[in-house]
Every structure is written in structure tokens, then in C-alpha cells.
Amino acid sequence: MNTAPLLAVDGLGKAFDGLVANRDISFVVHHGEIIGLIGPNGAGKTTLFNCLAGFHTPTTGRIAFEGHDITGSTPESAAALGIARTFQIVRVFQSMTALENVMVGAMLRNKRVSEARERAEDELAFVGLSHRADTPASDLTVSEQKRLEVARALATEPKLILLDEVMAGLNPTEVREASALVHRIHQRGIASIIVEHVMEGIMPIAHRMLVLDYGAKIADGTPAEIAENPAVIAAYLGE
């Protein structure tokens, strides 16, 4: 059996000339787990994602994925290893259709265009965007574009997916649909870390919550534990 955790982060820190965006963060993620990552604006959540996905080189600490040290790897090798991500500010390929966007993701594992297309059709169906397959990505609504980014990330066949505020700006019905989508990702055996300000979306489905404040981890526990944690309450009230 696989005993090593999927992801092990140890003492991770990231500074941008003087400004410390992440400091001494440690946690583990197990296969298939749903982790909620919360914290006030500017707490360092996106920076942590950028470190995990190879977009930033951490200033201190180590990142291990399936037991292998991946600290400071490139985004493309992180993707190849099985770490996929979405972007807080959507970055869809504007000149392509929705389907073509997802095909680019699928091509990581299969360079044959026809097979990548089939794979992409499946992932579009998974996020409920089949009816928009041939629509230019630039014509999709922001919430559709966010789902498109999820489909594109899933098409790379990740073991861990990093979702950065995919529920922002959704109405209550859409938030429930998004939560259900995250749960179905979990059922596929894919672990996820979800950055979210929408608590109704994340609290009911997360197995564990991590809370960041001023770049440091201030709490790590079940959603129920987190909701009663004085440090967390203080961080949010003190905003």
C-alpha cells in the first residue's frame, strides 16, 4: 500500500523582496482528501498554490509529492507529476473553443488529437459544459470559464487539483452545484485543495481545513473544529 502522503509540505516560506507572503507552513494531504484553504485577503493562499504548482520557488522549506522532493520544480513538471491548478483570475485560451481548451489539458497524457478530443468531451460533460463545447471560450460567462478551467485541469489526469476561488461570484444554487462537483472529483480519487471565501460552499464538503493569516498557518482541523477556533475567529473579525 501507498503509505507516503500524497503531498507533504514542510516549513514552506515565500518572500517577495521583504514582503513575507508564506511563512513556515507545514501540512500533509492524503490521497483523495478534500482540503479547504481559507484566510483573509492577502493571507498568502494563492502564493501557496503558486509554490505547490511550481510557479514560485519557495524561499524556505520543502515540498514532497508522493515521497519525491519537488521543491522549486517547474510548472510543467509539476503538471506531469499530477498537480493541476486553476487560476483565481481566469486564464482560458481566448482564441479557442471550450472543447479545444480542455483538449490542450488532455494532450499532456495523450498527444493524439482525436483521443484528446474524446477525453475533453468527457471532462466537459463532467463539469456540465457539454452544451458550450463549440463556443469560443471568450464568449463564456466568468462562472462558465471557471468550470472550464476545472475541466481543463482534470483533463491532465491529476492526483491533486488546486482550485483557487472557483465559487466566487456564484449564486446559492451554483454554489451547491460547485460543491457537488468537488465531491465528484473526490469520488474519482483525486485530492483537492480548495481556496474559498464562500464558506457555505467549502465547509460541508471539506475533510479538513487549513487557515492562513499573514502568511502563516494558524489552524488545521475539521470544519467543525475550525469554526470554533478562537484564533480563526479573531483573524476573521480582525480583518
Partner: peptide, 10 residues
């Protein structure tokens, strides 16, 4: 279109 997103897809 989006070089950073392309990198994220490998």
C-alpha cells in the same frame, strides 16, 4: 493566448 495556463497544463 495564456502562456502561464499552458505551463500549468504541462
Amino acid at each position: 493566448d495564456e502562456p502561464e495556463a499552458a505551463r500549468a497544463l504541462g
